[in-house]
Simulated scan of single mutants.
Amino acid sequence: MVIKRAQKEDADIIGEVHSAAWKQTYQGVFSQEYLDSDLPSARREEFLNSLNDKNCVYLLLKEDDHASGIVKLLVNRNDIEVASFYILEEYRGRGFGRKILEYIFSEYKDRHFVLWVLETNLNARAFYEKCGFELTDKTRLIDRGGKFKQLMYERK
Rank of each mutant, 00 (worst) to 15 (best):
K109T: 07
L61K: 10
T136A: 03
K62V: 08
R125Q: 03
A126P: 00
D36R: 12
D38K: 15
E102H: 06
L151E: 01
L60F: 11
S41E: 15
I100N: 00
R43F: 14
S41M: 14
S31P: 05
F30K: 15
L101R: 06
V82F: 03
L101G: 02
D38F: 15
V82K: 06
F96D: 13
R5L: 07
R98D: 06
I70T: 07
K99L: 12
V57T: 10
L39H: 15
G132N: 02
V17H: 04
S19V: 08
H66M: 13
F113K: 05
Y58R: 14
R92F: 07
L118I: 00
R125Y: 04
T120G: 10
S84K: 10
V71W: 05
D65E: 13
K4V: 06
N121K: 02
R92C: 05
L122C: 09
A21Y: 06
G28F: 12
V75K: 02
V117T: 05
E16Q: 09
E81Y: 04
S41Y: 15
R155F: 02
Y86D: 12
G93K: 07
I100R: 01
D38T: 15
I142H: 02
F148W: 01
R92K: 11
Y128W: 09
K4T: 09
L88V: 05
S84V: 07
F85G: 00
D53T: 12
R92T: 05
V82I: 06
C56I: 14
N78W: 14
H112T: 06
K4G: 12
D79K: 12
R77W: 15
R43M: 13
A20E: 05
I87L: 06
M1N: 02
L141T: 13
Y108W: 03
Y108G: 00
F148H: 00
R140F: 04
F85Y: 10
K8H: 09
Y34M: 10
S84G: 10
I104M: 03
Q32A: 13
E16M: 08
Q27E: 13
N76S: 15
S31T: 14
K54W: 12
K4Y: 07
D10W: 04
K99P: 08
V82D: 05
K149N: 06
K23P: 08
